[in-house]
């Protein structure tokens, strides 16, 4: 049995629009424009127990909508899903006790109380035995270096400190499935790194299945072997991160550094110029012509350094999104 299974999972939101201004408000009393938004369009995903999968896609692609359905927050319009063998939107306590959702943009801890109070509540709600709870709190707070924050009011914590407390709270009951929606958003580099290490360790030591969404490619690169890319509500890619680059790009990036300033016109015939500042240039050329372009550049220009590399994952994903035509109807808005 897979840990997470979605079959043709679809969500259509119904929005009512109104024109701006007072006249629009009055008109909307009598006639509202009804608009259907296809937020998730026949999503098919199968994730095995213990996997750590990245959910990627631009804002409004449908990642969060899919996560909300898998968490039991939203009912789907059609399709089916199972998480740990349960239908998530039935919200059975047996399911809820084995799963956790962390949202980087929402705080789940009680704002005016110290984190420990929320932890103690979760101990009861998730029915964690006292000794297990003690060990677990000790382990989590040491790993995340937050032991000293347990008695500070949540609202007095920094964003990074709070996020670490949120993560610890979400993992107290040792969930078998964890959804992490933008867990590192807005954090400084040090905190991001710490949280990344923590996620990896949790996945390894608890054997939990983790689905992560993030806008930071560093998170994804560091953590996820497999990525599911969602765009316009559809799964457009579901495979290893490594294969993404080779499958979707047939180009190489060449970075040239010059010993003295050159004119941009000197770069003619060397492929697409993506950046140029006189003393250095970045070129893109088809994969099988990269060697020829490099040779031409070396012979024609005062090159002191040359670097040939594959495009970054960021570049690939950006291209993937930019070049894909919208799957939804032209007048539909896509919401996430």
């Amino acid at each position: 049995m897979p840990a997470i299974l979605a079959e043709d999972l679809t969500k259509v939101y119904v929005l009512h629009q109104r024109d701006p201004g007072i006249a629009g408000a009055v008109r909307s009393l009598f006639r509202r424009k009804r608009q259907e938004v296809l937020a998730a369009d026949r999503i098919n995903v199968r994730i095995e127990e213990g996997e750590l999968v990245g959910f990627l896609g631009p804002n409004g692609a449908g990642k969060t909508t899919t996560l909300k359905m898998l968490s039991g927050i939203l009912y789907p319009t059609s399709g089916r899903a199972e998480v740990l063998g349960f239908v998530p939107w039935e919200r059975r306590p047996e399911f809820q006790k084995q799963f956790s959702l962390v949202m980087g943009q929402k705080n789940q801890l009680w704002w005016d109380l110290p984190p420990e109070e929320s932890f103690l509540l979760f101990r009861e709600l998730y029915e964690i035995p006292a000794d297990v709870y003690r060990q677990r709190v000790k382990m989590l707070t040491e790993m995340l270096e937050i032991s000293h924050l347990m008695n500070v009011q949540v609202r007095k914590l920094s964003l990074g400190e709070r996020m670490k407390c949120e993560l610890a709270a979400a993992l107290l009951h040792r969930p078998r499935v964890v959804f992490l929606d933008e867990p590192t958003i807005g954090l400084d580099v040090v905190s991001q790194k710490r949280i990344r290490e923590f996620i990896r360790q949790t996945n390894r030591e608890d054997g939990s299945t983790i689905v992560l969404t993030s806008h930071y490619m560093d998170d994804v690169r560091a953590l996820c072997e497999r990525v599911v890319i969602v765009d316009h509500g559809r799964v457009v890619y579901d495979d290893s991160l490594a294969r993404l680059v080779s499958r979707y790009t047939d180009s190489k990036h060449l970075r040239l550094t010059f010993s003295k300033p050159v004119e941009q016109s000197d770069l003619g015939g060397l492929g697409r110029v993506s950046s140029f500042d006189g003393l250095s240039a970045e070129l893109e050329s088809p994969r099988d012509e990269a060697a020829r372009v490099a040779a031409a550049a070396l012979s024609r220009l005062p090159v002191v350094d040359i670097e040939i590399r594959d495009p970054d994952v960021e570049d690939v994903i950006r291209d993937l999104f930019q070049h894909r035509p919208p799957a939804a109807a032209p007048d539909a808005v896509v919401a996430g």
Binding site: K68, S71, G72, P93, K97, L125
Partner: peptide, 12 residues
């Protein structure tokens, strides 16, 4: 404002 979502995931 969607805060309800968090409560919906709790076993209470």
């Amino acid at each position: 404002d969607g805060r309800l979502s968090i409560y919906l995931t709790r076993p209470f």
